[in-house]
């Protein structure tokens, strides 16, 4: 008996299986590469070889692609990333007060008091400091992203880099590079700048109390962890499955949901072989002219979304499991 959680993010697609005591038994990490449907199908192919679909008694989705994921796999819970991350973090450690989550496209701060979320914030119009930016800089400096953090830790001193805007941070870095600073020092400077940017923008007006958990893909970067600790003045913790927390949270929430409804909506692993594709069209019902996406499985329509008035989605709320959690 397992609960399945799928975190369909902008950069990565994570699948997690937890048992009924909420222990992680299987984790799959895939790159989304702009094709969310294929990423899920790939993940299901791997699961299919190891598990029987009848063993999956609950399924939940989260991440920016949670709606499409739910439409194609059938989910008991479709939850936003903030709730999912908080749920998984509380499972990991009941004492947690602050969650720092930095993913591919966005960063979040979640404040928890006595086991419930009391406040949260997300980056608004700026993506500086998120995983995609670090990825790009690693590529530019020709350093594997996995070693990025080690470079930062090796630096003897730091270089001041402007962290407010990703574009200017990059020109600042290039400038410092041309002045002859070592790669290590520049990378450390970058980590410091990103942490400053995070605390000033996302963490603005929030009191960050220990114990702090650092989650999301960027938590792999030891340089970022060290920079946070220096800035905050206390130790922060990176959970073992830092990159899977969203998927784990979705799985646990789905498990709770099925306990209420008694039956899962999960449609099984068979979708791995089916031909699933989407078509979009401009709705001509009103001047909004929403771009509506239609999802097909072979010849059947699985669901619609993207319209503002629910002229289309209204028909398929069942499939999409809107707010079923």
């Amino acid at each position: 008996m397992y609960y399945l959680g799928v975190d369909l993010g902008s950069v990565s697609t994570d699948l997690a299986l937890v048992d009924k005591n909420h222990n992680l038994v299987e984790k799959i990490y895939l790159k989304t590469r702009g094709n969310p449907i294929k990423a899920i199908q790939e993940g299901f192919k791997i699961l299919k070889d190891k598990y029987d679909e009848r063993e999956i008694t609950a399924a939940g989705t989260t991440g920016s692609g949670r709606m499409i994921a739910s439409a194609i796999m059938g989910a008991d819970a479709v939850k936003n990333e903030i709730t999912a991350h908080a749920r998984a973090a509380l499972e990991f450690d009941k004492e947690v007060r602050t969650i720092i989550e930095i993913g591919g496209q966005d960063s979040k701060i979640i404040i928890i008091n006595k086991g419930i979320v009391t406040d949260f914030a997300m980056n608004t119009v700026c993506a500086a400091g998120t995983g995609s930016f670090l990825d790009r800089q690693a590529e530019r400096l020709e350093i594997p992203i996995e070693e990025f953090g080690d470079y930062a830790l090796r630096a003897g001193s730091t270089v001041r880099i402007a962290g407010r805007c990703a574009v200017f941070a990059e020109s600042d870095m290039i400038h410092k590079q041309q002045l002859g600073y070592a790669k290590e020092e520049i990378i450390r400077g970058l980590c410091d700048a990103l942490v400053r940017n995070y605390l000033n923008n996302v963490g603005k007006g929030k009191t960050i109390l220990p114990k702090v958990l650092f989650q999301g893909g960027v938590a792999a970067n030891k340089g970022m962890k060290a920079a946070f600790e220096k800035e905050l003045g206390f130790e922060i913790f990176v959970p073992e499955n830092y990159s899977m927390m969203g998927a784990i949270g979705a799985a646990i929430i789905a498990g709770d949901q099925v306990k209420k409804t008694g039956k899962t909506k999960f449609r099984g692993f068979k979708l791995a072989e089916n031909n699933i594709f989407s078509r979009s069209f401009d709705c001509d019902g009103c001047p909004n002219r929403c771009e509506v996406v239609k999802i097909y499985e072979n010849d059947n329509i699985l669901g619609y979304f993207g319209d503002r008035c629910s002229r289309w989605t209204g028909k398929t709320n069942e499939i999409l499991g809107l707010r079923s959690g």
Partner: peptide, 28 residues
Amino acid sequence: VVDDMTGEAGFITRLEAFIDLLERRRDN
């Protein structure tokens, strides 16, 4: 904050998380 961005994914995430927060607070 609204601007001329028309992508609503982040917006919906915040909205849903806020409703979750209010519901959980109440249960508590």
